[in-house]
Simulated assay, not measured.
Amino acid sequence: MFQALQQHLSGEFTLPLDIDSAYPLFTPAGETLWVPDWQPQYFHPADGHTSAGMVFSTGHGGESTLWTLADYDPVAYRYRYVRVTPGSRFVQVQVSCQPVDAANTRVCVSYTLTGLSEDGNAAIRDFAAGYQAMLAEWRSLILAWREQSRHGQ
């Protein structure tokens, strides 16, 4: 009998960006700036405008994932996405940004993952093993994008 694995992961990193520059990087459109191969397909709204309840899909590694922006609080600099990879896993992703000072932002990221199959449980174990490295990569990708945009490339 299948038993769903559920795992909660969290971590943080600091970016040398003011909060109003850092926060938009974690919208679906913002992530297209720094995430390789991130190409969301927007269902609602069709133009991809960031809003609570927006629905979009992404594809990666032969999988298709459906997303919604469940909570959107720009005043508190917080997002909560809910996503499902059918037949594999259900995931809640929360990203919140907090100013460290006028020029630096702490980004806190948490994932709660629930397996929907044995393959999903295995994907969760793999994801958990690389979670801290993923956050370090996010920071590196954002810094590389920032450097490129400074030099007009």
Rank of each mutant, 00 (worst) to 15 (best):
L66H: 14
G30L: 08
A29S: 12
G53P: 00
Y111P: 00
A70Y: 13
H44L: 06
H44W: 10
L135H: 07
R83W: 08
E12I: 00
L66C: 08
T68V: 11
W38V: 00
A52P: 00
T68C: 05
E31A: 06
V95G: 09
G152H: 15
G62P: 08
D73T: 08
V55E: 04
L15S: 06
P45K: 04
L17M: 11
R78P: 03
E63Y: 11
C108M: 08
G61D: 11
A46M: 07
L17C: 04
F90L: 13
L143D: 12
Y131L: 01
T32C: 11
A29T: 09
T58F: 01
E137L: 14
A102R: 14
L9P: 07
L116S: 09
T114P: 02
A133Q: 12
D119Y: 12
M134V: 06
A128M: 01
Q7K: 15
H49C: 04
H60Y: 14
L141I: 02
G61N: 11
D47H: 06
T105Q: 08
M54Y: 03
G30P: 01
I124V: 07
Q41N: 12
P99T: 12
M134D: 10
V95R: 09
V93F: 10
D73H: 14
Y131K: 04
T114S: 12
P99M: 09
D101I: 05
S117N: 12
Y23E: 02
G48Y: 06
R89M: 15
P86A: 10
P36D: 09
Y72H: 13
E137M: 13
A144F: 02
Q94F: 05
A52N: 00
A144D: 12
Y72I: 02
R150G: 06
V109W: 15
M54I: 02
G11W: 01
D71K: 14
M1P: 05
G62A: 08
H8L: 00
T114C: 07
G61K: 09
V91Y: 03
